[in-house]
Design a protein around this nucleic acid. Structure first.
Length: 194
DNA sequence: CCCTGATTCGC
DNA sequence: GCGAATCAGG
């Protein structure tokens, strides 16, 4: 594939919308995210935030095309970073911010996740949860890792208890299906007509 | 391990 | 100009 005008245009558009390089690459097809990034740079639109405030002085990057593979790695990270890492399925508002909030306005034409106001767990979510629980890996607490869904299934006080264990959705503690039910926009649980 | 963009450099 | 390989960070 080559960078036809059309493809370049799409690239510009999507990049402008804040799409990630990989997403754009997927959409364009025939290219990798690297190709996309490379093109973006060549086009000179690497920085999404036009503004101009040139960020920082990029130190120097030691050319790696040397006889020294990777012996030299002058890296120092005295960063006292604090990570709240609070993961509570609570019915609090899910913070949907996959893309930079730079542009407050959401680009039109993008598939936005539905935002039901008076939602009650999408039937699909429930369905997929059931589905998922059937193919759950049934992991024990000890088997859980950073990337396994930590959704508990069954009764903790019995043998009949395990964790989903499917691949988590990046960032989240649960797999896609469980994220769907864990992060509910808000209340509205009470009035189940029955 | 998954992802992100940034950079280099052989092609 | 292109993009894989690599780097660097989340």
């Amino acid at each position: 594939m080559s960078w036809t005008e059309e493809r370049v245009e799409t690239l510009k558009k999507l990049w402008g919308e804040g799409q990630s390089a990989s997403q754009i690459a997927k959409e364009l097809g025939g290219v990798t995210r690297n190709a996309v990034i490379g093109k973006v740079h060549r086009l000179g639109l690497s920085n999404r935030t036009s503004g101009g405030a040139a960020p920082a002085a990029k130190p120097a990057k030691p050319a790696k095309a040397e006889a020294a593979p990777r012996a030299a790695k002058p890296a120092a990270k005295p960063a006292p970073k604090e990570e709240p890492a609070t993961e509570a399925p609570a019915a609090s508002a899910p913070a949907p911010a996959p893309t930079p909030a730079r542009k407050a306005i959401i680009p039109a034409g993008q598939p936005l996740p539905p935002q039901p106001s008076a939602n009650e767990i999408s039937p699909e979510a429930l369905a997929s949860v059931r589905e998922v629980e059937k193919k759950a890996r049934k992991l024990t607490l000890m088997e859980l890792t950073e990337r396994t869904c930590k959704w508990p299934i069954g009764d903790p006080s019995t043998d009949d208890f395990w964790f989903c264990g499917l691949p988590v959705q990046q960032g989240k503690p649960y797999c896609e299906a469980h994220v769907g039910v864990a992060f509910q926009p808000m209340s509205s649980r009470r009035d189940r007509k029955r």
